[in-house]
Amino acid sequence: MSDDHDDSPIAARVRELEAILEEKGLLDARELDQVLEAFAHKASPANGFRVVARAWVDDGFKARLLENANEALPELGLSMGGGLQVQRLHVVENTAQVHNVIVCTLCSCYPLSLLGPSPTWYKSPAYRSKVVSHPREVLAQFGLTLPESTEIQVWDANAESRYMVLPRRPANTEDLTEAELAAKVTRNGLIGTAAV
């Protein structure tokens, strides 16, 4: 599968639909471009990295984030409202006992505003079908081997909610600043296919 979907049948179908909607006056192409541009510019995994670093250094923020992520995000100037509608976000915390991993088995739902554009493998039928039934094997393929005693919780973003994983803070990072901590986080860590 290629990263470039411009030549795919679905891309062609979207272009045709867009043209028909414009022709009928139901869609303003400039308005659509503005929304997409604004969204794409703001959507970056750096946002997710900041959220994680803040949660690692501020227990109060972490508690608010896990309780109601949509209400906590504005504390960092972020929101889930970058797209056409505000989406509900659940942040799920990794602990010594529990490891979380996210998937959308029905399509490829993903919190773009916090994680940036999703990787191709996240959208692949192989990942979407196998991570729900055999997460331990899938995580091992990503180089993440978890102890047998670690409980794996898979979250299927099959409806209206989106998920982000809060990874465990790495050892020996007590002296790092919040910005340095943010630099430790990876996109895969926010999906759950990496430890951090």
């Binding site: 331990r136 409980e151 919780q153 898979v154 299927d156």
Partner: peptide, 18 residues
Amino acid sequence: SAQELFGQGDHTVTLSLW
């Protein structure tokens, strides 16, 4: 439980259901 969904596995899967 994975056991309920797939007849094997020791993990859980959480979904949003109407």
